[in-house]
Simulated assay, not measured.
Amino acid sequence: MIKLKDVIEKVYANDLSELSLFKTKQIINTINPHSYCEAKKDPFFSQALNESNVLLPDGTGIVLATKVLNGKVIKKIAGADVHQFLLEEAALKKLNVFYLGASENTLSLIKTRIKKEFPSITVNSYSPPYKPEFSKEDNVKMIAAVNKCKPDILFVGMTAPKQEKWVHTNSVFLDVKVITCIGAVFDFYAGTVKRSSPFWIKLGLEWLPRLLREPKRLWKRNFVSTPLFLWDLLKAKNYK
Rank of each mutant, 00 (worst) to 15 (best):
L49T: 02
L49I: 00
N50T: 07
E51K: 11
E51N: 11
S52A: 14
N53M: 03
N53D: 15
N53H: 15
V54Y: 03
V54K: 06
V54L: 05
V54D: 05
V54R: 02
L55E: 05
P57A: 10
P57E: 05
D58K: 00
T60W: 14
T60G: 09
I62A: 02
V63L: 05
L64S: 10
L64D: 08
A65W: 06
A65L: 09
T66I: 00
K67Y: 15
V68F: 00
V68S: 11
L69E: 00
L69G: 12
L69D: 05
N70R: 10
N70V: 01
N70D: 14
K72Y: 13
V73M: 12
V73G: 13
I74E: 00
K75V: 02
K76E: 10
I77A: 11
A80F: 14
A80Q: 11
D81W: 05
D81S: 06
V82M: 09
V82C: 08
H83P: 02
H83W: 15
F85Y: 14
L86D: 10
L86P: 01
E89M: 03
E89T: 12
A91F: 00
A91H: 14
A91G: 08
L92A: 13
L92S: 14
L92R: 13
L92T: 15
K94L: 05
L95D: 06
N96V: 10
N96Q: 15
F98H: 08
Y99F: 15
L100Y: 00
L100N: 02
G101S: 06
G101W: 01
G101E: 06
S103P: 08
E104A: 15
N105P: 00
N105Y: 03
L107C: 07
L107V: 03
L107F: 12
S108L: 12
L109T: 07
I110V: 07
K111P: 07
R113I: 02
R113H: 12
R113D: 01
R113E: 09
K115T: 12
E117R: 12
E117W: 03
E117H: 13
F118D: 04
F118N: 01
F118Y: 15
S120P: 07
S120T: 13
S120L: 13
I121P: 00
I121T: 08
I121D: 01
I121R: 08
V123C: 15
V123K: 03
V123N: 12
S125W: 07
Y126Q: 06
Y126I: 05
Y126K: 13
S127P: 03
P128D: 04
P128M: 08
Y130I: 08
K131S: 12
P132A: 01
P132K: 09
E133V: 09
E133M: 14
F134G: 03
F134I: 09
F134N: 02
K136C: 10
E137F: 10
E137P: 06
